Simulated scan of single mutants.
Amino acid sequence: MKEVLKKISFFKDFSEEELEELSKICILRTYEKDEILFYEGENSEYLHLLIKGNLKIYKVNSKGVEIVLHRFNAMNFVAELANYANIAFPASAKFLSTSSVIKIHFQSLKDRFLNKTSFVLTLLSALSQKLIYMSDFVHNEMILSAEAKLAKLLCEQSELFASIKHNQLASFINMAPETFSRLLAKLKNDDIIEINNKQVIIKDMNYLKSLYEG
């Protein structure tokens, strides 16, 4: 475990002794696609660091429909606010591919290492980024139309279309697959985008941006 921690930038300022001590409160686990990291309502005993793969954070509404709050790629802490606030996880996490996670016993980490300035700043930076994500999510869900959400996805994460199925992409922006396919076809027919072998070619970036930037 110590050798794994050495390669992670979050721990670059840790001494050999500190890495050895940290390794004793860490568990390295591998998960398969569709496995659950945690469910909404579970206790947040461990701080989770995603070091390989990707996962989604989601909630399920009263109709049983998944609402995707965010998608994480490595290297990222996951749902660390629950650890800081000592609350149950406010949402669930499911893996989108084979992934690896370091589970760090949070109380032990807090007792020993949260007086280490560089590490605390790293955690605060990660938490700040999550708040930005949440603000963006609220804006997308409350303000943007379905067409605008698709346009934003195309402009900011077009590379996802090469590796992820359209129904999964639809779930990322909380859109019905049928709506996603219809809007995507419309953009192709209107010569706004082109898709060749799953590669998206944006032919009119200004038009797409106008849909969500206003």
Rank of each mutant, 00 (worst) to 15 (best):
G53P: 07
L123W: 05
F38N: 00
C155N: 02
L114E: 07
V60L: 07
L208T: 03
F113T: 04
K94T: 09
I25Y: 06
T179W: 05
F172N: 00
E20H: 13
K12G: 10
K198D: 05
K63G: 07
N115E: 13
N174W: 06
A146N: 08
F180A: 01
D190R: 10
P177H: 04
E194D: 14
I143N: 07
M75Y: 12
A88V: 14
K63S: 15
Y207R: 04
N197T: 09
P177K: 04
I57D: 00
D190V: 06
K110L: 12
L96I: 08
T179R: 03
N167K: 11
E32L: 13
P177A: 10
S145C: 08
K33H: 10
N43M: 14
L121M: 14
D204R: 07
L127D: 03
L28H: 11
N189W: 07
K52V: 07
Q107R: 08
Q129M: 13
A74C: 13
L28M: 10
K149F: 08
S145D: 09
E45M: 10
L55S: 03
K165Q: 05
L37V: 10
F119W: 04
E32G: 08
L153F: 09
E213C: 10
M205Q: 11
N140M: 12
R29Y: 13
Y31M: 03
E40K: 14
S125I: 09
L114T: 11
S145I: 11
L127Y: 08
H70P: 00
N43F: 15
Y31I: 05
L184T: 01
V60W: 03
E141K: 09
